[in-house]
């Protein structure tokens, strides 16, 4: 017993050494694990710096990114029915080939007939900033170039260049299908699929799906939206 006499200081020292050794060992093994190729934790930030150095061959991408296009120039539904009882649809040019465009129309207040009740909330644009007074079945760029309705995105891009760039890089507008174009196509929306060209701001929506937590009732201050 005598030879085993220990002082409390020795004990504290032993404890400290014990803990330091086990923690060092643990940290060492943790680091070793990190270096293991089986645990490939590629660092995204490192990749960004060499973004332009390594080019992945993009030729083998068998599938395309397909951007949805509108069917064509809009058709206007007629109010009445013809003698056979059919509802009719006419192109814009049906009227506008004979009725001259009224370049004075800058707001919806002066619109009548087919255009009555149209809600326009798109900056300070006048009708003929986008519609073509010379060919009512197509659109017109700011420089006067004709643009088919199918290519409406070209028109939008005149002002919304940032969005167009983001769209071109998949950062705006969403998509469906495949991220991997070697395995399947990717479908993207057109501007006008989500934005009404006359009032383009994205509509408000109702939240209809919420997780039902047992003990997480909506708090008082969250009820204001209802």
């Amino acid at each position: 017993m005598k030879k085993l006499k220990l002082r409390i200081t020795n004990l504290v020292f032993a404890t400290t050494v014990f803990l330091v050794v086990i923690m060092t060992f643990g940290l060492y093994l943790k680091r070793a694990e990190r270096g293991n190729p089986h645990h490939d934790r590629a660092d995204v930030r490192g990749l960004l710096q060499v973004a332009n150095d390594d080019k992945v061959e993009s030729d083998d991408k068998a599938f395309a990114v397909v951007v949805h296009r509108p069917a064509g120039p809009p058709r206007v539904a007629l109010a009445g029915v013809d003698p056979q009882g059919r509802r009719g649809e006419v192109a814009c040019s049906t009227c506008h080939s004979v009725r001259k465009a009224n370049l004075e129309n800058k707001t919806t207040d002066t619109l009548n007939e087919f255009h009555e009740g149209l809600v326009v909330n798109h900056g300070k644009l006048a009708c003929y900033a986008c519609h073509n007074p010379d060919d009512s079945d197509s659109l017109r760029l700011a420089d006067g170039t004709n643009v088919a309705y199918q290519d409406v995105m070209t028109l939008c891009s005149q002002c919304h260049g940032q969005q167009a760039t983001a769209f071109a890089h998949g950062a705006h507008g969403g998509m469906n299908g495949h991220w991997d174009l070697t395995r399947g196509p990717q479908m993207k929306n057109n501007c006008v699929d989500c934005h009404d060209p006359h009032s383009p701001s994205f509509p408000s929506m109702i939240v209809d799906f919420k997780p039902k937590d047992r003990f997480n009732a909506p708090a008082e201050h969250d009820q204001e939206g209802q």
Partner: peptide, 15 residues
């Protein structure tokens, strides 16, 4: 519906 989400392969420089 808003197109807020983007997904892809970071190893592809064209992604």
């Amino acid at each position: 519906p808003t197109g807020a989400r983007v997904f892809g392969n970071i190893l592809d420089p064209d992604s």
